[in-house]
């Protein structure tokens, strides 16, 4: 019951969903639609579980006054406030939108913009033209970066933007396609392993 039943459930669900793709019959189409909704509903409860776990974690910090517990109050207050405001009133609640526009959106945009500094410092440490391939990587990155800003066009007379477009449209597409194919084959192989019960890490340990 502890291990065999989950493996059986996985196999049955995966087998039916794989077969339905190749069988153009209404009953299989219906199975696909039903399983899609099932995934959404179970996914909702999985998110709820994650949020509950977050609340318990921060609640413990506050309760036992662990290190930085004061910030846990901020996290819990933010969660409670946003949830309550979002659930009260209509779908396009103006207060909910205000909180999104003036709290969540600026914080997230600034967090991502911070990466510009860290990515630059990481590049400075990692991008040393020690080998041929490292030099190719460095040159491609420099060309694309210069090709995307007006000063790049200005200093090169339009060469950098043209080269950047070539790099993005051809070698980049070729590399991405090779990677996408590898990812596709890898994902299919992993899914097959899950379906056949070879890959069981999702069950955790007893």
């Amino acid at each position: 019951m502890k291990r065999q039943l989950p493996i059986a459930i996985t196999f049955i669900c995966a087998f039916i969903l794989t077969v339905q793709y190749f069988v153009p019959h209404r009953s299989f189409e219906m199975m696909y639609e039903v399983s899609n909704v099932w995934l959404q509903i179970i996914g909702f409860f999985a998110t709820l579980l994650g949020i509950l776990s977050l609340v318990l974690n921060h609640w413990e910090k506050v309760k036992y006054k662990q290190e930085n517990w004061i910030y846990s109050i901020v996290a819990l207050a933010g969660l409670a406030g946003m949830t309550l405001v979002g659930l009260i009133g209509s779908q396009d609640n103006p207060v909910f939108e205000w909180l999104y526009n003036f709290i969540l959106s600026p914080i997230q945009a600034t967090m991502f913009s911070l990466l510009a500094f860290f990515i630059a410092s990481a590049a400075y440490r990692a991008f040393r033209a020690r080998t041929t391939i490292a030099t190719i990587l460095l040159l491609a990155a420099i060309v694309v970066m210069l090709g995307r800003v007006p000063i790049g066009a200005y200093i090169s007379g339009g060469l950098f933007p043209w080269l950047a477009d070539i790099l993005l449209n051809y070698p980049n597409v070729a590399a991405k396609r090779a990677i996408i194919m590898g990812v596709g084959l890898g994902a299919a192989a992993t899914s097959l392993k899950v379906m056949l019960g070879i890959e069981r890490s999702y069950m955790g340990s007893d």
């Binding site: 502890k2 291990r3 039943l5 989950p6 493996i7 459930i9 996985t10 196999f11 049955i12 669900c13 995966a14 087998f15 039916i16 969903l17 794989t18 339905q20 793709y21 190749f22 696909y32 399983s35 099932w38 995934l39 179970i42 996914g43 409860f45 999985a46 396609r177 996408i180 194919m181 990812v183 596709g184 084959l185 994902a187 299919a188 899914s191 097959l192 899950v194 379906m195 999702y202 069950m203 955790g204």
Partner: peptide, 29 residues
């Protein structure tokens, strides 16, 4: 809790196998 997780993995895997072969391999080829 493994039962719903197994279901998510099963449905996900079943959908992924033909879909990634179609989109990530055949379409790219």
């Amino acid at each position: 809790a493994r039962y719903p997780i197994a279901m998510i993995w099963g449905i996900g895997s079943g959908v992924v196998i033909p879909l990634v072969l179609q989109n990530h391999v055949i379409r790219q080829l």
